[in-house]
Write a protein that binds this DNA or RNA. Structure first.
Length: 712
RNA sequence: GGACAAGUAGCUCAGUUGGUCAGAGCAUUCGGCUUACAUCCGAAAGGUCACAGGUUCGAGCCCUGUCUUGUCCACCA
């Protein structure tokens, strides 16, 4: 054994040993308990980042622990095509080459992205191996695998047939830069300083009222104003008419309680096609929906002289014109308001009237709520239960269609002859079910990525091996970051329950974010990125993983510093040297040894065994409780400060006699530490197996499948 | 405007139902190249556990209020 442990010499070999040994692939055994984690499939558009390393660290600990406990343990890996995310990344690359997505047709673009994603997927899987993920590659799935897609289609058809999916022309959150509609979850709210314009609206008699608005550029499309009917001052305006300051068309003032008399001037201009409040009010009062802004973010032809201008430009022009007419009473330049921006490109989201596919969430929300309240699904950290229920409360019908290329195209066909809509489970119908025409065209929209990944737990297990679904579903733990709780966890629960009648997982373990040394969020722009692969190469995967787990409770954010990782590298070296000492030192009594009393020796032996027992007991309890950081500290403390610092030192002059105890303590320590630091522990195990003089120890063929220690 | 966290040694964090709970790692100081490891060993220093009340025989741990920080939610033009 070398003087220091060098991860580079061992990690790759050890991983190959595991993978070739088939240890990651569980056998379905009715006499054993299954333990299943479906890996949150990393996006196949970028290399892994430090956040991925955290889920690997946490999930692999659980997986290896359960495997050693003897459960039929499945960790199912995957890759996510990550719809808009990937297209966004890919378009950036196109832009670097001076191209855009509009230079290609739908199929060509799809093929190009496909190729790009396949390469990334390979990289990503290689990185998971570097990190030591003991997942079952024979069951690996990709979200665009044909059999997965088939299941997504099936679920969609079922939802459609049950009346839970509908196509509707509604107000949606539309990003004119990404060129697609989103659900409300993809909209970020940011506070912006936007001027509030006070615009005068005159009536035929020359009297005027003032309306406050942040969006003067849509004034030409407005047909109504609104006040609160309970508003004593302005209620009497209801039914009266004023003139549109831009078009001079008559506008009626209606009454609706959504208007806050205290805000602005207590009078609101209604733009039903571009504002959620106004949309609702317009539906109630049967008002017209006039589209003022196109999906390309420019003013429509209705805007006449403003037509074709961007929203920003149009606003300037309109304000200028209104000012010339003397219609602007004042401008509050310091007004701050919250506007929706695209979570991806950060540009302003335009509420737009658009025909999209929606999922009725109400019945799904009901069962999803029930599953958690009844305890069928538990959150390891209870506080997230509240967050989850809150999300369910505010959920609206889910827009599941996206106007992007990269994704699963919706299995919907339109008849060119009679415009019949036909939904299938994937196959193109031969004829129109209504008029028998064969002239059918497929919907160009793709599914929201989360619609398919929401089906991931059952879709994967239904397409891996026969019997998998029956045996491994519902899965044991869903371990993922808190920022995708509403996007993913909530949807998996809703869709899992709908499609299978069972919960997709019994427990949700939420982990926090990885931050930098100062607790700052990690981002490329801040330049504080920690590359997990670089860290693994520098200090070893074990050190990285232990460093991550060590930091804080799983559910809390951790501040990761290189110091932290280095400390764990040192620890890996420590246990390596303990093994080195025990097996390579002369076990003959030292010349200068002092005779110790039998009693003292016995006491020392009993002490280390007792400490070991306590460590095993505590570690096991802590692991069951997902308190990985404490479990890690427990083992660290035993190995370093009890076994090495104390017992090993105390027995130096009687090593021969203490050898069985030393070997036993080392063996059990390796087992305890293995889930956290799999490479160094397995390396030692494999080395010691070959070593003479350790008969009766390290007998299992590999540590990864050695039996978890029990207290004797 | 709500919700949820967190405020404990210089730094990053543990402290599970109130009674060796005042801890760990890193950093610091002092002394050691002791034949497993200098990626090391030995020793030390360092906190009125945000603040103010309260419950209790006893409170970082429970209750009330305040302050600070962070995150999330929210259709007020």
């Amino acid at each position: 054994m070398d003087k220091t442990y060098d991860p580079k010499l061992h990690e790759e070999k050890i991983y190959t040993l595991w993978e070739k040994g088939g240890y990651f692939t569980p056998k379905i055994d009715k006499n054993k308990k299954p333990f299943t984690i479906i890996m949150p499939p990393p996006n196949a558009n970028d290399p892994l980042h430090i956040g991925h390393a955290r889920f690997v660290a946490v999930e692999d600990v659980l997986i290896r622990y359960h495997r050693m406990k003897g459960d039929s343990t499945l960790w199912l890996p995957g890759a996510d095509h990550a719809g808009i995310e990937t297209q966004f990344v890919f378009e950036k690359r196109l832009k670097e080459d001076g191209k855009s997505r509009f230079d290609f047709d739908q199929n060509t673009l799809y093929q190009m992205i496909w190729k790009y994603v396949q390469e990334n997927k390979k990289t990503m899987e290689g990185q998971l191996r570097i990190l030591g993920a003991s997942c079952d590659w024979t069951r690996g799935k990709f979200t665009l695998d044909p059999d997965i897609v088939k299941i997504v289609y099936k679920t969609f058809k079922k939802l459609y047939d049950n009346g839970l999916v509908y196509k509707g022309n509604k107000l949606v959150n539309y990003c004119t830069y990404c060129g697609t509609a989103y659900s409300e979850l993809e909209v970020d709210r940011v506070e912006k300083n936007i001027p509030l314009y006070y615009v005068k609206y005159s009536n035929a008699d020359g009297e005027f009222i003032t309306v406050a608005t942040t969006r003067p550029e849509t004034i030409f499309a407005d047909t109504h104003l609104a006040v609160n009917p309970k508003d004593k001052k302005r209620g009497k305006l209801i039914g009266t008419k004023v003139l549109n300051p831009l078009t001079n068309e008559e506008m009626e003032i209606i009454g609706d309680e959504f208007v806050d008399p205290e805000f602005g001037t207590g009078i609101v201009k209604l733009t039903p096609a571009h504002d959620f409040n106004d949309f609702e009010a317009a539906q109630k009062h049967d008002l017209p929906f006039i589209v003022a802004i196109n999906q390309d973010g420019k003013i429509t032809t209705i805007g006449k002289k403003y037509a074709g201008l961007t929203v920003k430009k149009a606003r300037e022009e309109v304000v200028k014109d209104l000012q010339e007419k003397g219609s602007i009473e004042k401008i509050d330049e310091n007004y701050k308001t919250v506007v929706g921006v695209c979570y991806r490109c950060k540009n302003t989201i335009e509420p737009m009237l658009s025909t999209q596919w929606f999922l009725k969430v109400e019945p799904l929300v009901k069962t999803a709520r029930e599953a958690v309240i009844s305890g069928k699904i538990k959150f390891a950290a209870q506080r997230f239960e509240k967050t989850y229920l809150h999300w369910l409360d505010i959920l609206r019908d889910w827009n599941i269609s996206r106007q992007i290329v990269w994704g699963i195209r919706m299995p919907v066909w339109y008849c060119s002859a009679c415009s019949q809509t036909i939904v299938t489970d994937g196959e193109k119908p031969e004829f129109c079910s209504n008029c028998q025409s064969a002239d059918l065209e497929q919907e160009s929209y793709t599914f929201d990525t989360w619609f398919s990944s929401g089906q991931w737990p059952f879709a994967t297990l239904q397409t891996t091996q026969p019997g998998d679904f029956e045996y491994f579903y519902p899965t044991s733990v869903m371990e993922t970051a808190y920022d995708i709780l509403p996007f993913w966890v909530m949807r998996m629960i809703m869709l899992g329950l709908y499609a299978t009648g069972e919960v997709p997982f019994k427990e949700v373990l939420i982990h926090g974010l990885v931050r930098d040394k100062q607790g700052q969020k990690i981002s490329k722009s801040k330049g504080n990125v920690i590359d997990p692969i670089v860290m693994a190469e520098k200090y070893g995967s074990d050190a990285l993983r232990m460093g991550i787990v060590w930091g804080a409770l799983v559910e809390n954010d951790i501040s990761l510093s290189e110091d932290n990782i280095r400390a764990q590298r040192n620890f890996a070296n420590k246990i390596w040297n303990v093994a080195r000492y025990i097996t390579t030192q002369s076990i003959e009594p030292r010349a200068k040894s002092i005779e110790k009393s039998k009693d003292t020796s016995k006491q020392d032996d009993a002490w280390i065994k007792e400490e070991l027992g306590k460590t095993i007991e505590r570690t096991t309890v802590l692991l069951e409780d997902y308190r990985l950081n404490e479990a890690a500290e427990e083992i660290y403390d035993f190995v370093w400060h009890k076994l090495a610092d104390v017992y090993l030192e105390k027995t130096k002059d009687r090593q021969s006699e203490a050898q069985p105890t030393l070997l036993f303590a080392l063996q059990e320590s390796l087992k305890l530490l293995h889930p956290f630091m799999p490479f160094v522990t397995e390396t030692i195990w494999q080395t010691l197996k070959e070593t003479k003089g350790v008969e009766g120890f390290f007998e299992e063929e590999a540590l990864i499948v050695a039996k978890w220690p029990e207290v004797v």
